[in-house]
Design a protein around this nucleic acid. Structure first.
Lengths: 342, 342
DNA sequence: CTGTTAGCGCTTTCAA
DNA sequence: TTGAAAGCGCTAACAG
């Protein structure tokens, strides 16, 4: 049995209409008599018509440009995000997508503002994905939205803004998972230090809050800290809290200094559970050595991928998302499954 | 600056040639004078020409059919695999892919042989993905290969056959990861029971071997078992080993009866670490209750997706894979990240 | 409201 | 060894 593909042409022929009319009906572009419209739609359903995306895109010859803005630090994390961006680009380039990547030098929010401002004003971009933020960016995002840009945030949300959607982790859940893992690995009894960074971001706050929430479920586990570590001077910061670390069963490192801290911990006496976030080669080495017990991965590749892909789908109106949150999954990495993430 | 897309036409114009000649050169289809060929290739590189996949597929009008054969049991696992298959189908249907799904009734290898035999003889299929196996299927696979079918295995390999590649877990690694997790969760000290099924498959053997390997790294952890559980009579089988379970710190369930066993364990006195494989709603409930500590996920959706996608890429000769293994990742699921997998 | 026509970028005859 | 022409399935003027 030969299966003839059902195309708009087939429908047109069977109904004695022109392809143009069929096309107008199928795409609800109006200018079709109600009666004809019904006939076409019915025939389409009857034959199980599926429009061919390739042909559609090819003939429409639209071009879309998505700009994507994110920080540089920590490098290993954003490199993985960029892999996902590249993956989405390769997948969608033939469909008319162009992607422009802007990396913001470490912590330079002013530069970030300038770049975004410039992108909006250039009017050469259809959509924008932003991973820097906190409050000062809300008005900038809204300004872009008013100027007809489609904007989403990723990795780092600005919920107060009018961005269309957010792609990334739920940081409270990271904290929750960290608390669960650390508690279970220390045998649900003992003290856990929470280490964070000197700058108190919303994300860091959320992690701590989540951590505390879950610790309540473990009556014999206590948290000490949070201890703030200066990322430019990890060893010194650690020296300052060294005494507090004695007798602890576990440590959760909520900032990006996991490997430096692992290096420091390695030299200390005694064994303790060490949990952190994300992964790179260095972290992997400490996992192999048993210094780091486990790490929580934010699926950075997928974050980059979705930040582009979902925006593109939004642009072509395939999926319409307004004020949604696309929470990416949290993966637990230990010695025996680290190979899959590195 | 307006970026003109570089198409074969542009190259042709700039070189004063016809599109046909340019196309022949670009696709190395011969019948082009060496000199002309060089000119074209150089120009293509100079302009950074990238062929448009959509146009290429549309004009080539090839159709491919992939058949995919897998068991029904355990249902929740194969449902997830099927989701991945559907995802790949939806993604590639416009490119000319058709997928035919064959589910083999529980354990009925004879039926499996018949179906595969029939698929091969029908000559209506270009490629075949098989997830049932062990030795008796080797000659069947080789027969298909001889008959010009592209064949891969997934989830369940037949390494002795001439299949082009395998997509799925490394079962030894599952066992290894299970041992690491259980050991760490029990505080690296105590006895762990390993529960498996009555039929001794290669996969089960591998898991056990991996489990033993890693336990050696934990001097204070001992394994008891493996205990074989009859899946049609879980409670009875459990009753038989109930006494051995007293005083154990942990249990690793390597078969597909995790939720039944969790239900049984729930009623026992005392608390122990319980680790298993895969996830469904019922398993998730026991994770939430704290009966199941963690479970190891084989990424079934991705297995189904890749089993189709990679075969398709092989068919269109985009990626040529011979005798390769595509090992899918192992994910650790606990209470606080289970929501992402259900 | 409907149809005709040209064209997206590439592939494939067929003829020169 | 090269080129002209038709066509994949859909869309977008434009004319009627």
């Amino acid at each position: 049995m030969i299966k003839t593909k059902v195309t708009a042409k087939i429908i047109a022929e069977q109904l004695g209409l022109s392809i143009a009319t069929v096309d107008r009906a199928l795409n609800k572009r109006g200018n079709v008599k109600e009666e004809t419209y019904q006939k076409i739609m019915q025939k389409a359903k009857e034959l199980n018509y599926k429009p061919n995306k390739l042909a559609s895109f090819l003939s429409r010859k639209e071009q879309f440009t998505i700009a994507i803005v994110f920080p540089e630090y920590p490098v290993y994390f954003w490199e993985q995000v960029e892999k996902g961006i590249t993956k989405a680009f390769n997948e969608l380039n033939d469909y008319g997508l162009d992607v422009k990547v802007f990396k913001i030098p470490d912590q330079d929010l002013t530069r970030g503002r300038e770049i975004i401002q410039h992108i909006i004003n250039s009017e050469k971009v259809d959509a924008l994905s932003i991973a820097i933020g906190d409050d000062p960016f809300v008005e900038l995002i809204d300004y872009g939205i008013v100027n007809n840009l489609k904007i989403c945030t990723f990795n780092h949300d600005s919920p107060a803004s009018r961005r269309m959607f957010y792609v990334g982790s739920d940081y409270r859940k990271i904290g929750r998972l960290a608390a669960e893992l650390t508690s279970k690995f220390i045998g649900e009894k003992g003290e856990i230090a929470l280490i964070t960074s000197t700058d108190t971001t919303y994300q860091a706050q959320e992690k701590i809050a989540g951590f505390r929430e879950v610790l309540k479920e473990y009556p014999n586990v206590e948290m000490v800290g949070p201890f703030k570590i200066d990322r430019l001077n990890v060893n010194h910061s650690m020296d300052l809290i060294k005494n507090s670390l004695d007798g602890l069963s576990g440590i959760y490192v909520a900032n990006a200094e996991l490997s430096s801290i692992a290096r420091y911990i390695e030299k200390l006496e005694g064994k303790r559970v060490l949990i952190g976030n994300d992964i790179n080669k260095e972290i992997n080495e400490y996992i192999k050595k048993g210094i780091i017990t486990a790490t929580i991965n934010q699926d950075p590749v997928n974050q980059g991928y979705l930040a582009v892909k979902k925006l593109f789908e939004h642009l072509i109106e395939e999926e319409y998302m307004n004020n949604k949150e696309l929470i990416t999954k949290l993966e637990i990495i230990t010695k025996e499954n680290a190979q899959f993430y590195i």
